[in-house]
Design a protein around this nucleic acid. Structure first.
Lengths: 243, 243
DNA sequence: CGGTATGTTGACAGTGATCAAGAAAGGTGG
DNA sequence: CCACCTTTCTTGATCACTGTCAACATACCG
């Protein structure tokens, strides 16, 4: 487990707002399944009681190492977290990025199969797995929340896995569109993570990332406001690249 | 939803054995989390009460089309089922294969994002989602089973997504090792699906699949007993290709 | 202001896709 | 059981996309 740092008092109000939003279901609505209605005070109190943190991590610091015991489950409060595996030849694969409000690190194994690292400066809540499990056994709403979170993560990674045989242009377009909806900005996407992170997530090299962005810009689908800020000028055309 | 066929009476005993095994947890053990102990007669009876089928599908027939309403969740009883998406240019990506005992098709969306097809002749159980959800709300063991199944699927696809930037040799080795443990045969893997299916799952062409198998055979890691039967002669060396 | 990390662009090489042809396997009807 | 046909698999030749290496530009930070 990575180094713990002091809690960040000024951020507390933000954490509680976010946390309430998540537990009331407005952040992760689930049509047709376990809908988390508002006002489930019991479930909220139950989960809050087993929370630790939030803990602040600096960019690129490690939260969990591959092989660490899977005693904790996490929730991003602020920033971006990546889950990744580094191979012997030094290459790295980033399985997923996690944005604020997402629960992650839930597994059915005793050890984490992937490292968990802060892709940007990040605030992270900790939940003890064993406590969460016993709460879930009593509180049906908590069990629903766990299932909802896991199902959402499954859906995201299934979508991501569709990129396995697609071109670089398609992968980058998919990434930009997905990120823009998750960051939830209007038209300009401020890339929170490095090109290296994006490359390792999409299975491309940083050079190809750069070149592809240039190509998309020359095709007038996007525009580079700065190296890290991209304006999606034609979402429809970008989406057409995916099909 | 695909064509329904008559039930297959002689297979019934097998289905019930399998189903009991699954619900008793011996097929999908979950260390450290919601352990499904033996003798949970209530949960078993509760789930069985909302089951339909089993329905028999012939190889390559469609069980669910992309975009069909997600009213049902499925369980393979016999054979192999694939979940896939076909793109406009005709290429296809197979997100996952499902082996007997696996629950699949669970989603938090109203429609299935992927087509579900029989990769071999297959027997499939149906569960009405709405019924499953209401049973899960009453029966904690059923909720646990849903979470366990979803978590297992998540783990599998996360492992698969690590292949996104690996070589053809590594992808094929990974596939063969995974398949051999899932089919649970001693040393020889009888490939249940076509090379085309494997190619679409690994993001390679059928020619590369064939060539890679030839390479692995010449390196004495495997041996081709027939086109569809492969003997893993050196599992350790195959596993070394993955790291 | 200098130094490091990050991003961009070019030249070239390598892995795997594509196209094409042939071989093996499986299914069907005689 | 065999001949035939279709599907699936194998192997070869060529090409394209993307990785690698290198140089340079820019941003970031003390």
């Amino acid at each position: 487990m990575g180094q713990f740092e002091v809690e960040d008092p000024p951020k507390q109000p933000k954490r509680d707002r976010l946390f309430y939003k998540v537990m009331s279901g407005s952040g992760t609505s689930l049509p047709g399944a376990f809908i988390l209605e508002d006002g489930q005070k019991l479930a909220k109190r139950a989960i809050l009681s087993v929370r630790r943190g939030p803990v602040r991590y600096r960019r690129n610091s490690t939260i969990v190492c591959e092989g660490d015991p899977a005693d904790y489950v996490f929730m991003v409060v602020d920033g971006i977290v990546r889950r990744c595996k580094t191979f012997q030849n030094g290459t790295r694969a980033i399985v997923a990025f996690h944005t604020p409000g997402e629960l992650f690190g839930w597994t059915d194994e005793l050890k984490h199969a992937l490292s968990i690292e802060a892709a940007t400066d990040a605030l992270v809540l900790f939940f003890k797995r064993s406590a969460l499990i016993s709460v879930a056994a009593r509180e049906q709403k908590v069990a629903s929340f766990l299932l909802t979170s896991t199902t959402s993560e499954l859906r995201r990674i299934q979508e991501h896995s569709l990129l396995i045989n697609r071109s670089a242009k398609c992968r980058v377009a998919s990434f930009l569109l997905d990120l823009s909806t998750r960051i939830d900005e209007m038209s300009d996407v401020d890339l929170p993570m490095s090109h290296q992170d994006i490359a390792d997530h999409l299975g491309l090299s940083i050079e190809t990332i750069s070149r592809t962005i240039t190509d998309l810009e020359q095709a007038c689908l996007i525009e580079r406001a700065s190296a890290r800020t991209i304006v999606l000028k034609n979402r429809a055309a970008l989406a057409r690249l995916l099909s």
